[in-house]
Design a protein around this nucleic acid. Structure first.
Length: 422
RNA sequence: GGAGGGAUGGCAGAGUGGUUGAAUGCGGCGGUCUUGAAAACCGUUGAGGCUUCACGGUCUCCGGGGGUUCGAAUCCCUCUCCCUCCGCCA
C-alpha cells in the first residue's frame, strides 16, 4: 500500500496514477484523506483523555502508598465518566482505522514515470527482441509431440487430480529437473542465495505480497488450517524478512527459490490453456531482491538482463515487453515481461515477469531497513521469474524438434540430461 | 493427538497489580585516558502514532487478540509459537 502521508501530500499524483492504471473512479483518494483526518482528530482526543487519566491513576497510587485511602477513593470516583467517553472514542478510532486500511488497500501503486501510458496489452512497448522466429509449417505444437512420445499425461493427471495437473513422464520428468537445476545453478553463480521455501503460507504473508485482499480467488486454500497454496515463490520468499529492520550493509539481498506454483486460473479457456500454456500447478524458479530505494530501478534492469540471459543461453528467441500503465498490475511500479517464441503455435508465451514494487509491498509487510544515516525507512522489493518451466518446455520442444520428431536438446541442458537427443 | 513448562529491549536476564518503557550484564555508539590500541572510567543506546515551524508535549507497544481494575509486563480468557514427556509417523 501507499503511505497515507504520501497520499495526503500528493493527492493529484496518486489520482493520476490510478487513472493511468485504468481505475476510472479515484474518489477513494479523497475519501481516505478525509477518513484519515477524522482518525487523527479522534486519536488526539483519546491521547488527551488518556494523559489525564494516567495522571490520576498515578496520584491514586501515591495516595494509596501513603495510606490516604479516603482521598484515593474520592479520586477513583472521579474517573468513571471519562472511562465511558474513552471507550466510545476508542470504538470510533478502530472503525476509522479499519475503514482507512480498506481504502488504502484499494489504491494501487503509482507507475514510474518511465512507464508508457496505455490501457491494453497492445500498448505495451516492445523493449527488445532477440533471435530468429522459426516459422516452418512442419513444426508440431508441443502437445502433439508430447503425446507422440508419451511425455506428458494430461488424462491421468485429470483423473488423479483435475485438469491442469499433468504428469510428466520419463525424459520429460527429467527435463523438468534439468531446467530447475540449470536455473538455480545460474542464479547462485550470479550471487543469489538459494532458499527452499514453504509451499503453504498463512494469511499475513498473502497480505504482505498483495494476494489478499482481492486476489484470493487465484489461490488454492487449505481452509482447515488457514493456509494458502503459494501461487509463486515470491510470496514466501519476500515474506522471509517481513516485519524486520535490516541494516543497510545487508542490502541488497538476492534470493532464488524453486517451488511449484498453484493457481486456480478461474475463467481461463480455449487456446490459452492448450497443452502446457496454462496449468493449475507448474514449476518456477523465482528471483527476489530486497534493495534500497536509490537502487531499485537499476536493480530492475539487472534483473531483466539476467532473465534475458537465461533465454539466450537456452538459445530461445524471445522479446521483452515494457508493460504499459494499464496492463501492469496493481502493486507494481514498473514491470517487464519476457515472452518466448513458440514456433509450433506461432505465438509468444510469457515466461518471466520482472517487477519493481517500490515500497508498496514493503509497507504492507513492514519490511524496513536502517539507512546510512541510521534512519529507518521502507526497503524496496523486486521479483522476477528465472524462469517458469512449462512454457519454456513448450518452446524447447517446438524449437528444438527435428522433422523426425526428435528433440535435440540445447547444449546447456545436456550435462543435466545425460544425453543430447530425446 | 494427550500432559506439563515457557515467550520481556540487538542478545542474555530481573521483574507477580502502582511513580517500570522496564533492574543488571553483554553488545553498539560517543567521550576521558593513551603516540595508537586494549583495559578502566563516564555518558548514551527500542519501535510506532498524534501534536508542534521548532524546542518540546503526549499516547501506544513486555508473543497476538480480548477481559478484570482508578491503574496490568504482572490477574483471567483465548490464539500462535518454542521447550520437555507420552502417542503417532516419512
Amino acid at each position: 500500500m501507499l503511505d497515507i502521508n504520501f497520499i495526503r501530500e500528493n493527492r493529484e499524483l496518486v489520482k493520476q496514477g490510478m487513472s493511468a492504471k485504468g481505475e476510472k473512479d479515484h474518489s477513494i483518494v479523497d475519501q481516505v484523506i478525509e477518513v484519515d483526518e477524522e482518525w487523527r482528530s479522534v486519536v488526539t482526543s483519546i491521547d488527551r483523555l488518556r494523559a489525564e487519566s494516567n495522571k490520576k491513576s498515578k496520584q491514586i497510587g501515591e495516595l494509596m502508598a501513603r495510606g490516604e485511602r479516603e482521598e484515593a477513593q474520592a479520586l477513583i470516583a472521579e474517573t468513571g465518566e471519562s472511562k465511558d467517553q474513552l471507550k466510545k472514542l476508542e470504538e470510533s478510532k478502530e472503525a476509522l482505522q479499519a475503514r482507512r486500511e480498506s481504502l488504502l488497500y484499494q489504491i494501487p501503486n503509482i507507475p514510474d514515470p518511465s512507464v508508457p501510458v496505455g490501457k491494453t496489452p497492445e500498448e505495451n512497448e516492445v523493449f527488445k527482441e532477440w533471435g530468429e522466429r522459426l516459422d516452418e509449417t512442419w513444426r508440431k505444437p508441443h502437445w502433439e509431440l508430447a503425446e507422440q512420445k508419451g511425455w506428458i499425461d494430461f488424462e491421468r493427471g485429470a483423473k488423479v487430480t483435475g485438469a491442469g495437473f499433468p504428469f510428466y513422464v520419463g525424459d520429460m520428468a527429467r527435463l523438468q529437473r534439468a531446467l530447475i537445476n540449470f536455473f538455480i545453478n545460474e542464479a547462485v553463480g550470479e550471487g543469489y542465495k538459494e532458499l527452499q521455501a514453504p509451499y503453504f503460507v498463512n494469511e499475513d504473508s498473502a497480505r504482505g505480497t498483495g494476494q489478499i485482499p482481492d486476489k484470493e480467488d487465484m489461490m488454492y486454500e487449505i481452509g482447515r488450517d488457514g493456509f494458502f497454496a503459494i501461487p509463486t515463490a515470491e510470496v514466501p520468499v519476500t515474506n522471509f524478512h517481513r516485519s524486520e529492520i535490516l541494516s543497510h550493509d545487508e542490502l541488497p539481498l538476492y534470493y532464488v527459490a524453486y517451488t511449484p506454483c498453484w493457481r486456480r486460473e478461474a475463467g481461463s479457456y480455449g487456446k490459452d490453456v492448450r497443452g502446457l500454456n496454462r496449468l493449475h500447478q507448474f514449476d518456477k524458479v523465482e528471483l527476489v531482491k530486497i534493495v534500497t530505494p536509490e537502487e531499485s530501478m537499476n536493480e530492475l534492469e539487472t534483473l531483466r538482463i539476467y532473465a534475458e540471459g537465461l533465454l539466450e543461453k537456452l538459445k530461445l528467441p524471445y522479446r521483452t515487453l515494457l508493460m504499459c500503465t494499464g496492463d501492469m498490475g496493481f502493486t507494481q511500479s514498473k514491470k517487464y515481461d519476457l515472452e518466448v517464441w513458440s514456433p509450433g503455435q506461432q505465438r509468444w508465451l510469457e515466461v518471466s515477469s520482472c517487477s519493481n514494487f517500490g515500497s508498496y509491498q514493503a509497507r504492507r509487510m513492514q519490511l524496513r531497513y536502517r539507512n546510512d544515516k541510521e534512519k529507518i525507512e521502507m526497503a524496496h522489493t523486486l521479483n522476477g521469474s528465472g524462469l517458469a518451466l512449462p512454457r519454456i518446455v513448450a518452446s524447447i520442444l517446438e524449437t528444438y524438434q527435428n522433422e523426425q520428431g526428435d528433440v535435440v536438446l540445447p547444449d546447456v541442458l545436456v550435462p543435466f540430461m545425460g544425453k543430447e537427443i530425446i
